[in-house]
Nucleic acid binder design. Structure first.
Length: 325
DNA sequence: TACCAGGAACGGG
DNA sequence: CCCGTTCATGGT
């Protein structure tokens, strides 16, 4: 096992400058993903199954959602969520099934574990779910998939953009937003574009956003960015109840039941949220006809009651399983 | 060409 | 609360 905070120049952690902005102070670490029996994390599945839109492949490794299975992924932790209080680029790769390697400008082991809920026991979660044939097949097929625990604002914007849009095109929009309105950050010899802050995105014009092919979602994104800039941050809803957060998220523009559930599940740690999209609707109609009630609220509530505390994990596996077939 | 893609705003029952 | 219509845009 490699040192979890390896440094250049033999410096110890205590001698690091406060603002570590130079490439020579890059740190690297290794994380085991095999707590007990077999690997319990699959980085490619976690990043490329369409649940997070906060990652991209490193330069020169193509776009997400193709066959490549050994990619290095990059995200930029927003200032408000980073221990250095400034946007922090983070590279992660999985050289073997049981090993995760990260690179960043700070000791990011805890951050990486947090970003994928790695401290949750996947076997324990599965044990809480009903052991029906569909869940069994989905978990056998998609084992290692983890829910993201992403920053709230980028997740909110991504799922406002998701309306009537394919997974690759949602991701394209987030890349375009970052490249156009976000701050450029440096890691080693490379530079990356962070997702824009609420204020940066609020300053964009509807016309400017339409140029990025956001279509009718452009004014939703701009107005929601204004609301977040002027009001409480959606991240604060992580400590609210499911019902309270669900209601308050819909005060933003372009946010209904489904987008609210996605933000709650992928950014606020509400793992009992069960987003019902066209794929899940189809799965329910085929395999769980008693849960499909037609209206969003009735269907989602029935699914939450059936799958329980970790209904969102079941949803993620069913979604990935359905889309893979 | 018509239809679909991780839906939501809007108006009306 | 529930339902029908409309809303950009690129792919098939």
């Amino acid at each position: 096992m490699a040192d979890s905070h390896l440094m250049m120049g033999g410096q110890s952690k205590g001698f690091l400058p406060v603002a570590c902005i130079h490439h020579w102070c890059m740190q690297r670490g290794e994380i085991s993903t095999a707590p007990s029996t077999g690997s319990s994390f699959d980085l490619k599945r976690a990043v490329e199954s369409g649940h997070t839109f906060c990652w991209r492949r490193d330069h020169g490794q193509g776009e997400l959602y193709d066959d490549r299975d050994d990619a290095t992924y990059v995200t930029i932790v927003p200032a408000r969520a980073s221990p250095t209080n400034q946007p922090e680029p983070l590279r992660v790769t999985q050289p073997t099934a049981d090993t995760l390697v990260w690179e960043g400008r700070f000791d990011a082991a805890e951050t990486v574990r947090d970003l994928f809920h790695l401290d949750l026991d996947l076997d324990q979660i599965r044990a809480t779910l009903p052991g029906d044939e569909v869940i069994d097949a989905a978990f056998d097929s998609e084992w290692g998939l983890r829910l993201p625990n992403d920053p709230a604002f980028p997740t909110l914007i991504a799922f406002i953009c998701s309306a009537q849009m394919s997974v690759p095109r949602i991701h394209e929009m987030q890349v375009a937003l970052a490249d156009t309105y976000g701050e450029t950050v440096e890691l080693g010899e490379s530079t990356y574009d962070a997702f824009p802050t609420p204020a940066q995105l609020a300053a964009a014009s509807e016309a400017g956003l339409r140029e990025l092919n956001l279509g009718y979602r452009a004014p939703y994104v701009q107005r929601t960015a204004e609301l977040v800039t002027d009001g409480p941050h959606p991240q604060t809803l992580a400590t609210a109840s499911y019902e309270d957060a669900h209601k308050r998220l819909q005060d933003y523009v372009g946010v209904g039941n489904k987008v609210a559930d996605c933000v709650q599940l992928y950014a606020l740690g509400h793992l009992d949220a069960f987003p019902v999209d066209t794929w899940i609707e189809s799965v329910l109609e085929t395999h769980y006809p008693t849960l499909a009630h037609g209206s969003y609220r009735a269907t989602a509530d029935a699914a939450r009651a059936y799958f329980g505390e970790y209904a969102g994990v079941a949803q993620a596996y069913l979604f990935a399983y359905a889309r893979e077939a």
